[in-house]
Each structure stands twice: as C-alpha cells, then as structure tokens.
Design a protein around this nucleic acid. Structure first.
Lengths: 224, 224
DNA sequence: CGGAATCTTGACGGATCCTTAACGCCGGTG
DNA sequence: CACCGGCGTTAAGGATCCGTCAAGATTCCG
C-alpha cells in the first residue's frame, strides 16, 4: 500500500483528501505546516507527497528543497497561484507536477497514478546492508556487528549520499557540494579526513577497504 | 542532447515550439499527425514526446497507446479540452503530464525538465554491453566477466567517448581534444599509450582487438 | 561559563596516475 | 630490398593525489 503524505493548512481540504485517498487504497498521513511535514516524512517515508505551497510557517519551496535533500519521492504541488513563474519555480525546485486550486479530485488521482507509475521505487529501501555493517536510512543509524556506531553529522551526510547510490561513482565535487555547499568544491582535503574517519569506524581493514572505495582523481563509490 | 518529438497539427504552434525548444538545447523533430508521429518515433527514438490530442487522422489517445507498446519515453499531452475526464483518460492511457491550451512556454519547458529529471534512462541506455565486457555509463564502472575493472580517469574518458558513439569512427584529434583539450591535438603519442592500456584491460587478445579497433591514419572505433 | 564533541587546517609518506622516451613490428613506397 | 611513417608495447621518472595523524579552532550543550 502506497503511502501518501498530504501537506496543507486547510483543515477541510485535508480531511476531504484523506477520505478520498483512503477510499482509493492509499495510506494517508497529513501535516498542516512545513515542519510537521518534514518530521512526518522522515519518520515514515512516503511513496508520494502532495504539497500545498501556501503554508503558515515556511515557504513551500523551502519544504520542497529540504525534502529533496534526502528523499526522491515524487511531489505534486498544490497552489492557488496561477502565475507562470510560480509553476516554473516549484517545478525547478524539485516538484514533479503542479496543479492549481480549485482542482478536480479525479484529476488529482489520475496525476498521482501517473507519477507513481514512473516511481516504482515507491518503497525505497530503508536499510542498506553489507556483510560487515548496516545503514538504516530512515532512523539515521549505523550498526556494525549488531553494535551501534556513532557518526557525526558530517560523517552521516557523506555516508548517506554514497549509500543511496550503491555502486555509483560520486565525484568529490558532488560530495563537497552536497555536504558543505557548492562554494566548497575545492576543499578536497575535508573529504580525505572524513573518508578516513568513516573507514576507521566501518571497515575491518582500513588499508584495504571493501565497501568505501576510492577512485583516484575522481571521487568515491559505495559497494554493497 | 535530448531529442524531443513534437506532435501537433497546428503549423504555427509547431514552428514556435521548434524554435523555442532548439534555443534551449533540445534536438527537435516534428510530426503533424499520428501516423507520422509513430514513424518518426520509431526511426529516431526521442527522449521525450510532446503530443497534441486533437490530431486529424487518429485519436491522440490511440497514438499514445501505440507508442506505449514499445517506448517508455515520457509523454506530455497538450489539449484544448479542459474537461476532467479528458485529463484522466490521457493520464491513464500512459501520459505523464497534461497541460491545456493556451499555455505558457516557460511552464512547458519547466514541465519538460521535471519529466526528464525522472526518466534519465529513457534518453540513453545507461549500459553498453559486449560479449566480453560491459560499460555502465551511469555508475562509471566497467565489468569484465563479472569482475570490476579499474580504470584511471583518462582511460575512462577515452572509453566513454568511444562507447557513447558505437560503431562510429572517432578521429585522433577528436579524442585528444575531448580528453586533454584542443591544445593537445598533436600528441598522438598519448593515445597510443592509452589505447594499449585499455586493450590490455578489456580485450582478450590485445593483438587482435575485437571491440577497440584502429583505423590507421584516422582514429579509433568501438564495435559492440 | 566550561567541557566535550566536532570541524578545520597543515604536513608528511606512500600510492596512483600521467608523461615521456625508447624499441620492435608492420605495411607501404621508392 | 632498404627506407620510412604509423602503431603497439613497455618501463622509468616525475607530478599529482590520497591516507593518516595531530593540533588548533569552533560549535554545541549542560
């Protein structure tokens, strides 16, 4: 059963959407503001998100960007604004679709189906395992031989980026831009320090890493 | 460069879309009716399709269903009809997005970007295989007999260039300019060294290469 | 305010990669 | 048949990159 996270500050609309979506077989979770949305999404990662741009606490686009930092779930944006630039901004910020209020429920449902058709990974793996250690993306926790491993925020950010792209080579620039920001793309020194730290905590033989691999001159790669 | 197939019977709109899309870096192909669209799509598979539902010869939905039988490229539907059931039908027939005329070009471009973000696989195959080795462009990884092959950055750059143009003859100048920069077009020596290196790592018989072929006096060619 | 955890910075040895040069092979040519 | 240019192969040197360590700076939290 696919999980839908509906974010809107209009209680009536929220209730109507909940009933409709549940009637069509979705597991619905709701949030009334941006902060609650991000908490709910991290606690119980949804298969798809319906997001109203007009939230009381923070800009809808900000919620979208924050969500995109760690979630690839499709996002359908609701908005009362018909302006072209609003749509362009939301879509370029990571939204997958944009419909304006008022909208027909049938259309909303059809668009959700179309989006979910493209994202078969609706239930993305919440944990990634290797013979030596296990990474729980949802709980932000790493265990090794059953024992929890303490990671600093920076260590986790790097490990998460690598683990979410198993086997894929991530360039140093990508890691630096993702963890420290695009302005730090030259600071390859940081990376060396933190990769050594991660290997010391996760690899049996830091000299011959089996899962956190180096590609000299390019970047790093996680092998499961 | 991503290929866009635009299908519409309005010649003015067709021309406008062609100019706009080309200005944004897409390779544009056009068709004025359903049959021409299907032929064009099969002859030169597009990365994404913009499809008008009101075609003279056949129902737009029929084109969509026929296309979906063999293509997974994202489809954005244009239509003059605002009705809810029209949208639902098109989306459920396999369309990925639906916008009604008149529409803003900026919005169309943003929606194309959003769709292409989701379907990178539809644009180009992410792996290229030969009987002996396999090149995974997306993961930047090469495997031979299931075993990963270590390539240096320069080796990978050359191999990638050749593999992305299967069967096509690439001149030495093109390779040198692409990998080392236009100032190195005279340094054919580099190429000899690296082609030998690549063959040693990828070919069974380096004396009789089966996939990394030399065209004496001209350049090199990758044969799948 | 003080201590602990985390991040930044710099330096060093070692590993990896790039460049360069030399030599043998082959086919074409005078 | 000798010569010559283009190609394949190899190995050594130097340049670059990476792993490691430790100390100082900063932030976090009680």
């Amino acid at each position: 059963m696919t999980g839908v996270l509906v974010v809107d500050d209009d209680q009536h609309l929220l209730k109507a959407l909940r009933i409709t979506l549940q009637a069509h077989g979705y597991a619905v979770e709701t949030a009334a503001d941006g902060e609650a949305a991000l908490i709910a999404a991290s606690r119980n990662p949804p298969g798809i998100v319906v997001l109203d741009l007009g939230l009381p606490d923070m800009d809808g686009a900000a919620v979208l960007r924050e969500l995109r930092r760690w979630s690839t779930a499709p996002v359908l944006v609701l908005s009362a604004r018909h302006g072209s630039s609003d749509k362009v901004d939301a879509l370029d910020a990571g939204a997958d679709d944009y419909i304006t209020k008022p909208f027909g429920l049938e259309e909303l449902l059809a668009r959700l189906r179309a989006l979910l058709r493209r994202a078969p990974e609706a239930i993305e793996p919440s944990t990634v395992d290797t013979p030596e250690f296990s990474v729980d993306l949802g709980r932000r926790m790493v265990t090794r031989n059953g024992e929890p491993v303490r990671l600093t925020p920076t260590e986790w950010s790097i490990l998460e980026l690598l683990v979410r792209n198993p086997g894929k080579l991530i360039t140093q620039q990508q890691i630096l831009a993702s963890v420290w920001g695009p302005a730090y793309e030259k600071e390859a020194n940081y990376l060396r320090v933190y990769m050594a730290q991660l290997r010391r905590k996760l690899e049996a033989d830091t000299g011959n890493p089996r899962h956190l691999l180096t590609e000299a001159g390019i970047g790093y790669r996680f092998r499961p």
